[in-house]
Design a binder for these strands. Structure first.
Lengths: 285, 285
DNA sequence: GTAATAGTGTCTTTAAGACATTATGGC
DNA sequence: GCCATAATGTCTTAAAGACACTATTAC
Protein backbone atom coordinates (compact mmCIF):
# COMPACT_ATOMS: atom_id res chain seq x y z
CA UNK A 1 0.00 0.00 0.00
CA UNK A 2 1.38 3.38 -0.92
CA UNK A 3 2.46 5.62 1.94
CA UNK A 4 0.43 8.66 1.09
CA UNK A 5 -2.60 6.56 1.71
CA UNK A 6 -1.92 7.13 5.38
CA UNK A 7 -4.12 10.16 4.93
CA UNK A 8 -6.80 8.06 3.37
CA UNK A 9 -6.46 5.67 6.24
CA UNK A 10 -6.77 8.33 8.85
CA UNK A 11 -9.84 9.57 7.08
CA UNK A 12 -11.16 6.04 6.89
CA UNK A 13 -11.22 5.83 10.65
CA UNK A 14 -14.22 8.07 10.31
CA UNK A 15 -16.61 5.95 8.26
CA UNK A 16 -18.61 8.96 7.19
CA UNK A 17 -15.65 10.43 5.32
CA UNK A 18 -15.87 7.72 2.65
CA UNK A 19 -18.66 6.01 0.85
CA UNK A 20 -18.53 2.56 2.36
CA UNK A 21 -17.94 -0.67 0.46
CA UNK A 22 -19.55 -3.75 1.96
CA UNK A 23 -17.56 -6.98 1.96
CA UNK A 24 -19.39 -10.28 1.71
CA UNK A 25 -18.48 -13.88 1.05
CA UNK A 26 -20.51 -15.99 -1.38
CA UNK A 27 -20.27 -19.76 -1.63
CA UNK A 28 -20.27 -21.99 -4.66
CA UNK A 29 -20.77 -25.28 -2.85
CA UNK A 30 -20.83 -28.31 -5.14
CA UNK A 31 -21.76 -31.88 -4.42
CA UNK A 32 -22.77 -35.01 -6.27
CA UNK A 33 -26.24 -36.44 -5.87
CA UNK A 34 -27.49 -39.39 -7.89
CA UNK A 35 -24.64 -38.94 -10.32
CA UNK A 36 -25.44 -35.30 -11.08
CA UNK A 37 -23.62 -32.18 -9.99
CA UNK A 38 -25.60 -30.04 -7.56
CA UNK A 39 -25.01 -26.57 -6.16
CA UNK A 40 -26.23 -25.17 -2.87
CA UNK A 41 -28.61 -22.25 -3.41
CA UNK A 42 -30.95 -20.14 -1.31
CA UNK A 43 -34.25 -18.65 -2.40
CA UNK A 44 -34.32 -14.88 -1.95
CA UNK A 45 -37.13 -13.69 0.28
CA UNK A 46 -37.00 -10.00 -0.52
CA UNK A 47 -35.95 -7.47 -3.13
CA UNK A 48 -33.90 -7.18 -5.12
CA UNK A 49 -34.27 -10.41 -7.09
CA UNK A 50 -37.06 -11.55 -4.78
CA UNK A 51 -37.90 -15.17 -5.36
CA UNK A 52 -34.78 -15.87 -7.38
CA UNK A 53 -32.13 -18.39 -6.45
CA UNK A 54 -28.87 -17.00 -5.12
CA UNK A 55 -25.60 -18.31 -3.83
CA UNK A 56 -25.48 -18.51 -0.03
CA UNK A 57 -23.36 -15.84 1.54
CA UNK A 58 -23.20 -13.02 3.99
CA UNK A 59 -21.20 -10.22 5.46
CA UNK A 60 -17.69 -10.58 6.71
CA UNK A 61 -17.61 -9.62 10.37
CA UNK A 62 -15.29 -6.66 10.50
CA UNK A 63 -12.28 -7.13 12.73
CA UNK A 64 -13.40 -10.56 13.85
CA UNK A 65 -12.86 -13.10 11.10
CA UNK A 66 -10.82 -13.78 8.00
CA UNK A 67 -12.35 -14.39 4.59
CA UNK A 68 -11.83 -18.14 4.84
CA UNK A 69 -13.40 -18.19 8.29
CA UNK A 70 -16.38 -16.22 7.05
CA UNK A 71 -16.83 -18.63 4.15
CA UNK A 72 -16.59 -21.67 6.41
CA UNK A 73 -19.10 -20.12 8.79
CA UNK A 74 -21.58 -19.42 6.01
CA UNK A 75 -21.22 -22.93 4.66
CA UNK A 76 -21.74 -24.44 8.09
CA UNK A 77 -24.83 -22.33 8.67
CA UNK A 78 -26.46 -23.41 5.43
CA UNK A 79 -25.54 -27.07 5.53
CA UNK A 80 -25.71 -27.74 9.25
CA UNK A 81 -22.18 -29.11 9.20
CA UNK A 82 -20.13 -29.00 12.37
CA UNK A 83 -16.38 -28.60 12.53
CA UNK A 84 -15.84 -32.31 11.93
CA UNK A 85 -18.07 -32.26 8.88
CA UNK A 86 -16.36 -29.20 7.52
CA UNK A 87 -13.07 -31.04 7.76
CA UNK A 88 -14.19 -33.35 4.99
CA UNK A 89 -15.09 -30.45 2.71
CA UNK A 90 -12.59 -28.83 0.40
CA UNK A 91 -12.78 -25.06 0.58
CA UNK A 92 -10.82 -22.58 -1.49
CA UNK A 93 -11.10 -18.99 -2.53
CA UNK A 94 -12.50 -18.53 -6.01
CA UNK A 95 -12.22 -14.81 -6.71
CA UNK A 96 -13.66 -11.43 -5.88
CA UNK A 97 -16.42 -9.61 -7.68
CA UNK A 98 -16.67 -5.90 -7.21
CA UNK A 99 -18.39 -4.15 -10.05
CA UNK A 100 -20.09 -1.12 -8.51
CA UNK A 101 -23.47 -1.96 -10.03
CA UNK A 102 -23.61 -5.63 -9.16
CA UNK A 103 -25.85 -4.90 -6.18
CA UNK A 104 -28.38 -2.10 -6.74
CA UNK A 105 -28.32 -1.03 -3.11
CA UNK A 106 -24.68 -0.19 -2.59
CA UNK A 107 -21.18 -1.11 -3.68
CA UNK A 108 -20.61 -4.67 -2.50
CA UNK A 109 -17.40 -6.59 -3.00
CA UNK A 110 -18.05 -10.29 -2.76
CA UNK A 111 -15.23 -12.72 -2.15
CA UNK A 112 -16.50 -15.92 -3.72
CA UNK A 113 -15.39 -19.29 -2.40
CA UNK A 114 -15.63 -22.75 -3.89
CA UNK A 115 -16.45 -25.89 -1.91
CA UNK A 116 -16.40 -29.58 -2.85
CA UNK A 117 -18.55 -31.62 -0.50
CA UNK A 118 -19.55 -35.27 -0.26
CA UNK A 119 -23.24 -36.01 -0.51
CA UNK A 120 -24.84 -34.27 2.46
CA UNK A 121 -28.29 -34.40 4.03
CA UNK A 122 -30.75 -31.90 2.68
CA UNK A 123 -29.71 -28.34 3.26
CA UNK A 124 -31.53 -26.48 5.95
CA UNK A 125 -32.28 -22.83 6.38
CA UNK A 126 -29.35 -20.95 7.79
CA UNK A 127 -29.45 -18.39 10.52
CA UNK A 128 -31.78 -16.55 8.22
CA UNK A 129 -35.19 -17.77 7.19
CA UNK A 130 -34.30 -18.60 3.60
CA UNK A 131 -34.86 -22.02 2.14
CA UNK A 132 -31.59 -23.61 1.14
CA UNK A 133 -31.47 -26.51 -1.28
CA UNK A 134 -29.14 -28.53 -3.45
CA UNK A 135 -30.10 -27.78 -7.07
CA UNK A 136 -28.88 -29.71 -10.13
CA UNK A 137 -26.50 -27.48 -12.01
CA UNK A 138 -27.97 -28.67 -15.30
CA UNK A 139 -31.29 -27.04 -14.45
CA UNK A 140 -29.82 -23.57 -14.11
CA UNK A 141 -29.52 -20.89 -16.74
CA UNK A 142 -25.88 -19.93 -16.84
CA UNK A 143 -25.81 -18.19 -20.20
CA UNK A 144 -23.09 -15.63 -20.34
CA UNK A 145 -21.47 -13.18 -22.67
CA UNK A 146 -20.12 -15.27 -25.55
CA UNK A 147 -16.80 -13.45 -25.78
CA UNK A 148 -15.76 -13.59 -22.14
CA UNK A 149 -15.53 -17.28 -21.37
CA UNK A 150 -14.08 -17.28 -17.88
CA UNK A 151 -10.79 -15.49 -17.84
CA UNK A 152 -11.76 -13.34 -14.90
CA UNK A 153 -14.88 -11.66 -13.58
CA UNK A 154 -15.82 -8.96 -16.02
CA UNK A 155 -18.50 -8.03 -13.60
CA UNK A 156 -21.34 -7.22 -15.93
CA UNK A 157 -24.39 -8.27 -14.03
CA UNK A 158 -27.39 -9.51 -15.93
CA UNK A 159 -30.83 -8.11 -15.36
CA UNK A 160 -33.42 -10.45 -13.93
CA UNK A 161 -35.71 -11.68 -16.66
CA UNK A 162 -33.32 -10.63 -19.40
CA UNK A 163 -32.68 -13.72 -21.45
CA UNK A 164 -29.25 -14.18 -22.91
CA UNK A 165 -28.22 -15.60 -26.25
CA UNK A 166 -28.04 -19.18 -25.07
CA UNK A 167 -30.71 -21.81 -25.47
CA UNK A 168 -33.14 -20.72 -22.78
CA UNK A 169 -35.46 -23.67 -22.88
CA UNK A 170 -35.22 -24.39 -19.16
CA UNK A 171 -35.02 -20.94 -17.70
CA UNK A 172 -38.24 -20.99 -15.72
CA UNK A 173 -37.26 -19.70 -12.33
CA UNK A 174 -33.71 -20.81 -12.88
CA UNK A 175 -31.98 -17.47 -13.26
CA UNK A 176 -29.69 -16.50 -10.47
CA UNK A 177 -29.71 -13.21 -8.59
CA UNK A 178 -27.05 -10.53 -8.96
CA UNK A 179 -24.00 -11.74 -10.92
CA UNK A 180 -24.26 -15.15 -9.33
CA UNK A 181 -24.63 -16.92 -12.67
CA UNK A 182 -21.20 -15.69 -13.59
CA UNK A 183 -19.74 -16.58 -10.21
CA UNK A 184 -21.20 -20.07 -10.46
CA UNK A 185 -19.92 -20.45 -14.00
CA UNK A 186 -16.45 -19.39 -12.87
CA UNK A 187 -16.70 -21.87 -10.01
CA UNK A 188 -17.63 -24.66 -12.38
CA UNK A 189 -14.72 -23.79 -14.64
CA UNK A 190 -12.42 -23.84 -11.66
CA UNK A 191 -13.80 -27.19 -10.52
CA UNK A 192 -13.39 -28.69 -13.97
CA UNK A 193 -9.74 -27.75 -14.17
CA UNK A 194 -8.99 -28.36 -10.50
CA UNK A 195 -9.77 -32.06 -10.70
CA UNK A 196 -7.36 -32.33 -13.60
CA UNK A 197 -4.32 -31.40 -11.58
CA UNK A 198 -5.32 -32.28 -8.03
CA UNK A 199 -6.90 -35.30 -6.36
CA UNK A 200 -9.80 -33.15 -5.14
CA UNK A 201 -12.36 -35.20 -7.01
CA UNK A 202 -12.12 -37.47 -3.97
CA UNK A 203 -13.58 -34.63 -1.86
CA UNK A 204 -16.94 -35.37 -3.52
CA UNK A 205 -16.90 -38.94 -2.18
CA UNK A 206 -16.97 -40.64 1.17
CA UNK A 207 -13.88 -41.83 2.94
CA UNK A 208 -13.91 -45.11 1.01
CA UNK A 209 -14.82 -45.27 -2.65
CA UNK A 210 -14.44 -47.37 -5.75
CA UNK A 211 -12.69 -46.37 -8.95
CA UNK A 212 -16.06 -46.31 -10.68
CA UNK A 213 -17.43 -43.85 -8.15
CA UNK A 214 -14.40 -41.67 -8.73
CA UNK A 215 -14.96 -41.90 -12.46
CA UNK A 216 -18.57 -40.83 -11.94
CA UNK A 217 -17.27 -37.65 -10.30
CA UNK A 218 -15.14 -36.82 -13.31
CA UNK A 219 -17.96 -37.59 -15.69
CA UNK A 220 -20.39 -35.39 -13.78
CA UNK A 221 -18.02 -32.46 -13.41
CA UNK A 222 -16.66 -32.62 -16.94
CA UNK A 223 -19.93 -33.61 -18.55
CA UNK A 224 -18.18 -36.28 -20.57
CA UNK A 225 -18.07 -40.05 -20.57
CA UNK A 226 -14.70 -41.61 -19.89
CA UNK A 227 -13.35 -44.98 -20.91
CA UNK A 228 -13.70 -47.16 -17.83
CA UNK A 229 -10.69 -49.34 -18.44
CA UNK A 230 -8.25 -46.60 -19.29
CA UNK A 231 -9.49 -44.45 -16.43
CA UNK A 232 -9.00 -47.29 -13.99
CA UNK A 233 -5.40 -47.93 -15.01
CA UNK A 234 -4.62 -44.23 -15.14
CA UNK A 235 -5.86 -43.50 -11.62
CA UNK A 236 -3.88 -46.37 -10.15
CA UNK A 237 -0.75 -45.30 -12.01
CA UNK A 238 -0.63 -41.75 -10.64
CA UNK A 239 1.45 -41.82 -7.45
CA UNK A 240 -0.44 -40.78 -4.33
CA UNK A 241 -3.82 -40.32 -5.97
CA UNK A 242 -5.56 -43.19 -4.21
CA UNK A 243 -4.44 -45.99 -1.94
CA UNK A 244 -6.09 -49.33 -1.43
CA UNK A 245 -8.01 -50.06 1.74
CA UNK A 246 -7.74 -53.79 1.09
CA UNK A 247 -11.51 -54.10 1.21
CA UNK A 248 -14.11 -54.56 -1.47
CA UNK A 249 -17.59 -53.17 -1.92
CA UNK A 250 -20.33 -55.21 -0.29
CA UNK A 251 -22.37 -55.39 -3.48
CA UNK A 252 -21.64 -55.49 -7.13
CA UNK A 253 -22.97 -52.72 -9.32
CA UNK A 254 -26.72 -52.26 -9.73
CA UNK A 255 -26.57 -54.09 -13.02
CA UNK A 256 -24.24 -56.82 -11.83
CA UNK A 257 -20.54 -57.31 -12.07
CA UNK A 258 -17.77 -58.14 -9.65
CA UNK A 259 -17.41 -56.39 -6.31
CA UNK A 260 -15.13 -53.38 -6.79
CA UNK A 261 -12.13 -52.80 -4.58
CA UNK A 262 -12.21 -49.88 -2.20
CA UNK A 263 -9.75 -47.01 -2.06
CA UNK A 264 -9.19 -43.90 -0.01
CA UNK A 265 -7.58 -40.59 -0.98
CA UNK A 266 -3.80 -40.74 -1.15
CA UNK A 267 -1.31 -38.20 0.10
CA UNK A 268 -0.60 -36.42 -3.18
CA UNK A 269 -1.62 -32.78 -3.40
CA UNK A 270 -1.00 -32.57 -7.13
CA UNK A 271 -1.40 -35.24 -9.77
CA UNK A 272 1.66 -36.15 -11.83
CA UNK A 273 0.97 -36.81 -14.53
CA UNK A 274 -2.33 -34.95 -14.59
CA UNK A 275 -5.69 -36.33 -15.72
CA UNK A 276 -6.33 -34.09 -18.67
CA UNK A 277 -9.81 -33.50 -20.02
CA UNK A 278 -10.41 -35.04 -23.42
CA UNK A 279 -11.16 -32.99 -26.54
CA UNK A 280 -10.21 -29.51 -25.52
CA UNK A 281 -8.36 -28.53 -28.68
CA UNK A 282 -11.45 -27.14 -30.35
CA UNK A 283 -12.74 -25.00 -27.50
CA UNK A 284 -9.36 -23.82 -26.40
CA UNK A 285 -8.37 -21.22 -28.93
CA UNK B 1 -26.88 -13.35 -0.55
CA UNK B 2 -29.43 -14.56 1.92
CA UNK B 3 -32.64 -12.58 2.20
CA UNK B 4 -32.60 -11.86 5.89
CA UNK B 5 -29.49 -9.87 5.22
CA UNK B 6 -31.79 -7.23 3.85
CA UNK B 7 -31.80 -5.94 7.39
CA UNK B 8 -28.05 -5.91 7.46
CA UNK B 9 -28.11 -4.06 4.19
CA UNK B 10 -30.52 -1.48 5.39
CA UNK B 11 -28.32 -0.99 8.40
CA UNK B 12 -25.27 -0.77 6.17
CA UNK B 13 -26.70 2.28 4.53
CA UNK B 14 -25.74 3.97 7.74
CA UNK B 15 -21.99 3.44 7.91
CA UNK B 16 -21.87 4.05 11.64
CA UNK B 17 -24.01 1.00 12.33
CA UNK B 18 -21.19 -1.34 11.28
CA UNK B 19 -17.48 -1.40 11.80
CA UNK B 20 -16.23 -0.65 8.32
CA UNK B 21 -13.97 -2.84 6.23
CA UNK B 22 -11.71 -1.00 3.82
CA UNK B 23 -11.23 -2.48 0.35
CA UNK B 24 -7.94 -1.96 -1.44
CA UNK B 25 -6.22 -3.39 -4.49
CA UNK B 26 -2.57 -4.40 -4.33
CA UNK B 27 -0.45 -5.11 -7.38
CA UNK B 28 2.13 -7.81 -7.96
CA UNK B 29 3.62 -6.39 -11.15
CA UNK B 30 6.39 -8.51 -12.64
CA UNK B 31 8.80 -7.74 -15.43
CA UNK B 32 12.12 -8.99 -16.78
CA UNK B 33 15.20 -6.79 -16.61
CA UNK B 34 18.63 -8.00 -17.63
CA UNK B 35 17.40 -11.55 -17.52
CA UNK B 36 16.16 -11.36 -13.91
CA UNK B 37 12.63 -11.23 -12.62
CA UNK B 38 11.75 -7.90 -11.02
CA UNK B 39 8.72 -6.77 -9.04
CA UNK B 40 7.35 -3.25 -8.71
CA UNK B 41 7.56 -2.01 -5.11
CA UNK B 42 7.09 1.25 -3.27
CA UNK B 43 8.98 2.43 -0.20
CA UNK B 44 6.67 3.20 2.70
CA UNK B 45 6.99 6.76 3.93
CA UNK B 46 5.12 6.42 7.20
CA UNK B 47 4.05 3.94 9.84
CA UNK B 48 3.27 1.17 10.02
CA UNK B 49 6.23 -0.54 8.36
CA UNK B 50 7.85 2.84 7.70
CA UNK B 51 10.79 2.46 5.35
CA UNK B 52 9.86 -1.05 4.28
CA UNK B 53 9.07 -2.06 0.73
CA UNK B 54 5.45 -2.74 -0.06
CA UNK B 55 3.36 -3.70 -3.05
CA UNK B 56 1.79 -0.71 -4.78
CA UNK B 57 -1.89 -0.38 -4.17
CA UNK B 58 -4.68 1.80 -2.97
CA UNK B 59 -8.29 2.13 -2.12
CA UNK B 60 -11.08 1.08 -4.41
CA UNK B 61 -13.25 4.09 -5.16
CA UNK B 62 -16.62 3.14 -3.79
CA UNK B 63 -19.39 3.15 -6.35
CA UNK B 64 -17.11 4.36 -9.11
CA UNK B 65 -14.85 1.58 -10.31
CA UNK B 66 -14.56 -2.18 -10.47
CA UNK B 67 -11.71 -4.12 -8.93
CA UNK B 68 -10.00 -4.57 -12.28
CA UNK B 69 -10.36 -0.91 -13.05
CA UNK B 70 -8.88 0.02 -9.69
CA UNK B 71 -5.96 -2.31 -10.28
CA UNK B 72 -5.31 -0.92 -13.75
CA UNK B 73 -5.47 2.60 -12.39
CA UNK B 74 -2.97 1.87 -9.65
CA UNK B 75 -0.61 0.20 -12.09
CA UNK B 76 -0.82 3.13 -14.48
CA UNK B 77 -0.14 5.59 -11.67
CA UNK B 78 2.98 3.79 -10.54
CA UNK B 79 4.43 2.98 -13.95
CA UNK B 80 3.37 6.03 -15.91
CA UNK B 81 1.72 3.81 -18.49
CA UNK B 82 -1.11 5.23 -20.56
CA UNK B 83 -4.01 3.24 -21.91
CA UNK B 84 -1.97 2.09 -24.90
CA UNK B 85 0.85 0.88 -22.67
CA UNK B 86 -1.57 -0.91 -20.39
CA UNK B 87 -2.87 -2.77 -23.39
CA UNK B 88 0.42 -4.62 -23.66
CA UNK B 89 0.31 -5.65 -20.00
CA UNK B 90 -1.39 -8.82 -18.83
CA UNK B 91 -3.52 -8.17 -15.76
CA UNK B 92 -5.46 -10.73 -13.76
CA UNK B 93 -6.89 -11.06 -10.31
CA UNK B 94 -4.71 -13.03 -7.94
CA UNK B 95 -6.77 -13.38 -4.77
CA UNK B 96 -8.07 -11.53 -1.76
CA UNK B 97 -6.44 -11.23 1.62
CA UNK B 98 -8.61 -10.32 4.55
CA UNK B 99 -7.21 -11.46 7.87
CA UNK B 100 -8.43 -8.90 10.41
CA UNK B 101 -4.93 -8.29 11.78
CA UNK B 102 -3.10 -7.86 8.51
CA UNK B 103 -3.19 -4.10 8.86
CA UNK B 104 -2.82 -2.80 12.42
CA UNK B 105 -5.01 0.22 11.80
CA UNK B 106 -8.26 -1.37 10.72
CA UNK B 107 -9.72 -4.35 8.92
CA UNK B 108 -8.56 -4.10 5.33
CA UNK B 109 -9.48 -6.56 2.61
CA UNK B 110 -6.99 -6.37 -0.21
CA UNK B 111 -7.82 -7.74 -3.64
CA UNK B 112 -4.40 -8.61 -5.05
CA UNK B 113 -3.79 -8.52 -8.78
CA UNK B 114 -0.98 -9.93 -10.89
CA UNK B 115 0.57 -8.18 -13.87
CA UNK B 116 3.07 -9.33 -16.48
CA UNK B 117 4.77 -6.38 -18.17
CA UNK B 118 7.48 -5.99 -20.79
CA UNK B 119 10.57 -4.13 -19.70
CA UNK B 120 9.42 -0.63 -18.82
CA UNK B 121 11.23 2.62 -18.08
CA UNK B 122 12.07 3.20 -14.45
CA UNK B 123 9.02 3.44 -12.28
CA UNK B 124 8.06 6.85 -11.07
CA UNK B 125 6.29 8.01 -8.01
CA UNK B 126 2.56 7.63 -8.31
CA UNK B 127 -0.01 10.17 -7.38
CA UNK B 128 1.53 9.88 -3.93
CA UNK B 129 5.06 10.87 -3.02
CA UNK B 130 6.41 7.34 -2.61
CA UNK B 131 9.44 6.11 -4.49
CA UNK B 132 8.49 3.24 -6.79
CA UNK B 133 11.13 0.93 -8.19
CA UNK B 134 11.59 -2.39 -9.94
CA UNK B 135 13.36 -4.67 -7.46
CA UNK B 136 14.92 -8.04 -8.30
CA UNK B 137 12.76 -10.74 -6.76
CA UNK B 138 15.86 -12.70 -5.77
CA UNK B 139 16.87 -9.93 -3.36
CA UNK B 140 13.70 -10.16 -1.31
CA UNK B 141 13.05 -12.20 1.78
CA UNK B 142 10.00 -14.28 1.04
CA UNK B 143 10.35 -16.88 3.76
CA UNK B 144 7.01 -18.32 4.68
CA UNK B 145 5.44 -20.89 6.91
CA UNK B 146 6.93 -24.20 5.80
CA UNK B 147 3.67 -26.13 5.91
CA UNK B 148 1.48 -23.77 3.92
CA UNK B 149 3.09 -23.61 0.49
CA UNK B 150 0.58 -21.63 -1.51
CA UNK B 151 -2.77 -23.32 -1.43
CA UNK B 152 -4.58 -20.19 -0.46
CA UNK B 153 -3.93 -17.14 1.65
CA UNK B 154 -3.81 -18.27 5.24
CA UNK B 155 -3.51 -14.65 6.15
CA UNK B 156 -1.01 -14.84 8.94
CA UNK B 157 0.97 -11.65 8.57
CA UNK B 158 4.59 -11.66 9.64
CA UNK B 159 5.95 -9.13 12.04
CA UNK B 160 8.53 -6.71 10.69
CA UNK B 161 11.96 -7.79 11.77
CA UNK B 162 10.81 -11.28 12.62
CA UNK B 163 13.00 -13.61 10.65
CA UNK B 164 11.52 -16.82 9.35
CA UNK B 165 13.08 -20.22 9.14
CA UNK B 166 14.56 -19.74 5.69
CA UNK B 167 18.12 -18.76 4.88
CA UNK B 168 18.04 -15.08 5.75
CA UNK B 169 21.42 -14.12 4.39
CA UNK B 170 20.09 -11.28 2.22
CA UNK B 171 17.35 -9.84 4.36
CA UNK B 172 18.81 -6.38 4.93
CA UNK B 173 15.93 -4.02 4.22
CA UNK B 174 14.28 -6.65 2.05
CA UNK B 175 11.33 -7.60 4.16
CA UNK B 176 7.97 -6.55 2.85
CA UNK B 177 5.31 -4.68 4.75
CA UNK B 178 2.05 -6.24 5.95
CA UNK B 179 1.46 -9.70 4.46
CA UNK B 180 2.93 -8.62 1.15
CA UNK B 181 5.63 -11.28 1.25
CA UNK B 182 2.91 -13.89 1.14
CA UNK B 183 0.98 -12.07 -1.57
CA UNK B 184 4.12 -11.77 -3.66
CA UNK B 185 4.95 -15.43 -3.09
CA UNK B 186 1.44 -16.40 -4.18
CA UNK B 187 1.84 -14.19 -7.24
CA UNK B 188 5.11 -15.86 -8.13
CA UNK B 189 3.53 -19.28 -7.75
CA UNK B 190 0.68 -18.19 -10.00
CA UNK B 191 3.12 -16.80 -12.57
CA UNK B 192 5.16 -19.99 -12.55
CA UNK B 193 2.16 -22.16 -13.27
CA UNK B 194 0.44 -19.67 -15.57
CA UNK B 195 3.22 -19.77 -18.15
CA UNK B 196 2.91 -23.54 -18.22
CA UNK B 197 -0.60 -23.54 -19.61
CA UNK B 198 -0.87 -20.18 -21.31
CA UNK B 199 1.27 -18.24 -23.77
CA UNK B 200 1.53 -15.36 -21.28
CA UNK B 201 5.30 -15.59 -21.08
CA UNK B 202 5.16 -13.49 -24.24
CA UNK B 203 3.65 -10.67 -22.17
CA UNK B 204 7.12 -10.15 -20.66
CA UNK B 205 8.60 -9.45 -24.09
CA UNK B 206 8.23 -6.83 -26.79
CA UNK B 207 6.01 -7.31 -29.79
CA UNK B 208 8.76 -9.20 -31.65
CA UNK B 209 11.03 -11.64 -29.89
CA UNK B 210 13.30 -14.60 -30.49
CA UNK B 211 12.83 -18.10 -29.14
CA UNK B 212 15.88 -17.56 -26.95
CA UNK B 213 14.34 -14.48 -25.40
CA UNK B 214 11.20 -16.48 -24.71
CA UNK B 215 13.29 -19.20 -23.15
CA UNK B 216 14.97 -16.58 -20.95
CA UNK B 217 11.51 -15.68 -19.60
CA UNK B 218 10.82 -19.27 -18.63
CA UNK B 219 14.24 -19.65 -17.08
CA UNK B 220 13.87 -16.47 -15.03
CA UNK B 221 10.34 -17.25 -13.82
CA UNK B 222 10.97 -20.91 -13.12
CA UNK B 223 14.52 -20.43 -11.86
CA UNK B 224 15.69 -23.35 -13.94
CA UNK B 225 17.81 -23.79 -17.03
CA UNK B 226 16.08 -25.35 -20.01
CA UNK B 227 17.51 -27.32 -22.88
CA UNK B 228 17.73 -24.82 -25.74
CA UNK B 229 17.17 -27.27 -28.55
CA UNK B 230 14.21 -29.09 -27.03
CA UNK B 231 12.63 -25.81 -25.93
CA UNK B 232 12.93 -24.42 -29.42
CA UNK B 233 11.25 -27.38 -31.07
CA UNK B 234 8.59 -27.56 -28.37
CA UNK B 235 7.54 -23.91 -28.67
CA UNK B 236 7.22 -24.15 -32.44
CA UNK B 237 5.20 -27.35 -32.17
CA UNK B 238 2.46 -25.94 -29.92
CA UNK B 239 -0.29 -24.55 -32.16
CA UNK B 240 -0.89 -20.84 -31.78
CA UNK B 241 1.88 -20.18 -29.27
CA UNK B 242 4.04 -18.03 -31.57
CA UNK B 243 3.93 -17.12 -35.23
CA UNK B 244 6.81 -16.09 -37.42
CA UNK B 245 7.24 -12.48 -38.47
CA UNK B 246 9.51 -13.53 -41.32
CA UNK B 247 12.28 -11.29 -40.01
CA UNK B 248 15.47 -12.04 -38.15
CA UNK B 249 17.27 -10.26 -35.35
CA UNK B 250 19.72 -7.58 -36.47
CA UNK B 251 22.55 -9.03 -34.42
CA UNK B 252 23.61 -12.42 -33.29
CA UNK B 253 23.83 -13.10 -29.60
CA UNK B 254 26.37 -11.22 -27.47
CA UNK B 255 28.68 -14.19 -27.60
CA UNK B 256 28.22 -14.95 -31.27
CA UNK B 257 25.97 -17.27 -33.17
CA UNK B 258 23.56 -16.96 -36.06
CA UNK B 259 20.88 -14.26 -36.19
CA UNK B 260 17.73 -15.64 -34.62
CA UNK B 261 14.37 -15.52 -36.35
CA UNK B 262 11.72 -13.25 -34.92
CA UNK B 263 8.26 -14.27 -33.72
CA UNK B 264 5.22 -12.61 -32.28
CA UNK B 265 2.58 -13.99 -29.90
CA UNK B 266 0.09 -16.33 -31.57
CA UNK B 267 -3.65 -16.50 -31.12
CA UNK B 268 -3.79 -19.38 -28.65
CA UNK B 269 -5.11 -18.62 -25.18
CA UNK B 270 -4.08 -21.96 -23.76
CA UNK B 271 -1.14 -24.14 -24.70
CA UNK B 272 -1.88 -27.67 -25.92
CA UNK B 273 0.11 -29.53 -25.04
CA UNK B 274 1.35 -27.49 -22.10
CA UNK B 275 4.95 -26.63 -21.32
CA UNK B 276 5.37 -28.41 -18.03
CA UNK B 277 8.02 -27.45 -15.54
CA UNK B 278 10.77 -30.01 -15.14
CA UNK B 279 11.41 -31.90 -11.91
CA UNK B 280 8.33 -31.25 -9.87
CA UNK B 281 7.82 -34.78 -8.58
CA UNK B 282 9.92 -34.17 -5.48
CA UNK B 283 8.36 -30.91 -4.36
CA UNK B 284 4.87 -31.87 -5.25
CA UNK B 285 3.76 -34.23 -2.54
C1' DG C 1 40.50 -19.48 -35.26
C1' DT C 2 37.62 -20.03 -31.05
C1' DA C 3 33.59 -20.20 -28.73
C1' DA C 4 28.94 -19.79 -28.10
C1' DT C 5 24.56 -19.80 -30.18
C1' DA C 6 20.35 -21.03 -33.62
C1' DG C 7 18.16 -24.53 -35.38
C1' DT C 8 17.40 -29.45 -36.72
C1' DG C 9 17.73 -34.60 -36.45
C1' DT C 10 17.57 -38.95 -33.97
C1' DC C 11 16.70 -42.08 -30.40
C1' DT C 12 14.61 -43.67 -25.96
C1' DT C 13 11.20 -43.52 -22.57
C1' DT C 14 6.79 -42.32 -20.96
C1' DA C 15 2.06 -41.54 -21.31
C1' DA C 16 -2.52 -41.53 -23.60
C1' DG C 17 -6.04 -43.71 -26.14
C1' DA C 18 -8.38 -47.47 -28.73
C1' DC C 19 -9.64 -51.88 -28.18
C1' DA C 20 -9.78 -56.66 -26.61
C1' DT C 21 -10.20 -60.09 -22.94
C1' DT C 22 -11.31 -62.44 -18.58
C1' DA C 23 -13.83 -62.95 -14.46
C1' DT C 24 -17.61 -61.72 -11.45
C1' DG C 25 -22.10 -60.91 -9.85
C1' DG C 26 -27.26 -59.16 -10.27
C1' DC C 27 -31.34 -60.39 -12.40
C1' DG D 1 -28.43 -67.69 -19.32
C1' DC D 2 -27.79 -62.89 -20.09
C1' DC D 3 -25.58 -58.76 -19.55
C1' DA D 4 -23.21 -55.07 -17.54
C1' DT D 5 -19.34 -54.25 -14.85
C1' DA D 6 -14.29 -54.69 -12.67
C1' DA D 7 -9.91 -55.22 -13.80
C1' DT D 8 -6.09 -56.22 -16.82
C1' DG D 9 -3.54 -56.80 -21.31
C1' DT D 10 -2.03 -55.27 -25.89
C1' DC D 11 -1.09 -52.21 -29.50
C1' DT D 12 -0.56 -47.60 -31.64
C1' DT D 13 0.42 -42.87 -31.46
C1' DA D 14 1.88 -38.63 -29.26
C1' DA D 15 4.97 -36.27 -26.52
C1' DA D 16 9.08 -35.32 -23.51
C1' DG D 17 13.86 -35.60 -22.78
C1' DA D 18 18.72 -36.75 -23.79
C1' DC D 19 22.01 -36.11 -27.07
C1' DA D 20 24.30 -35.26 -31.50
C1' DC D 21 25.16 -32.33 -35.28
C1' DT D 22 25.53 -28.37 -38.66
C1' DA D 23 25.67 -23.60 -39.69
C1' DT D 24 26.38 -18.92 -38.32
C1' DT D 25 28.13 -14.98 -35.98
C1' DA D 26 31.00 -12.01 -32.31
C1' DC D 27 35.36 -11.52 -30.83
Amino acid sequence: MAPQQEEDFLAAYDPRAFDPIAVTVDMVALTLRAGALHVLLVRRGGPPFQGAWALPGGFVRAGRESLDQAAARELAEETGLDAAGLGRVHLEQLGSYGHPGRDPRMHVVSVAHLAFAPDLPDARAGSDAAAAAWIPVAELDLSRQPDAPTRRPNEQGRRPGAHGGGPGHRSVGTELAFDHARILADGLDRARSKIEYTPLATAFLGEHFTISELRAVYEAVWGATLHAGNFHRKVLSVPGFVESTGGTATHGSVRGGPRARLYRAGDARLLHPALLRPDREETVR
